[in-house]
Amino acid sequence: MGASVNQDLKSTTLQLGTERISKLALMSRLKLEDHEIESFGPQIDSILGHVAELQSVVVEGVEPFLSPVSKMAEGTREDRPRSNEALREGARKVGACAPQQLEGAFVVPPVL
């Protein structure tokens, strides 16, 4: 449980533990069975162990690379609405996908 700091200053290996996994599961809205929490823990630790090598890379003064196109793509559109007909059609198609509707509203059933 918690972080165990390796004596070697170049790498800090984090071990998440079941409490941490449970918290992450809640934050991610994932309901995990006990056996999943138990198996995911070591697997995630192992992956984070591999990821830890990034801590040894010199990144001072490096700008993060967030997308290959941030400088190039135009990315805007005119402020023009779609036609009423297209709006109706689109809304209808979206509505058709809904598991549960009440007078058009999407329904989340009563929680107990």
Binding site: V51, L54, V57, V59, E63, P64, F65, L66
Partner: peptide
């Protein structure tokens, strides 16, 4: 953030 920076270096 760190991973994104190393990504820049790889690119």
């Amino acid at each position: 953030l760190r991973a994104a920076k190393v990504r820049a270096l790889i690119a």
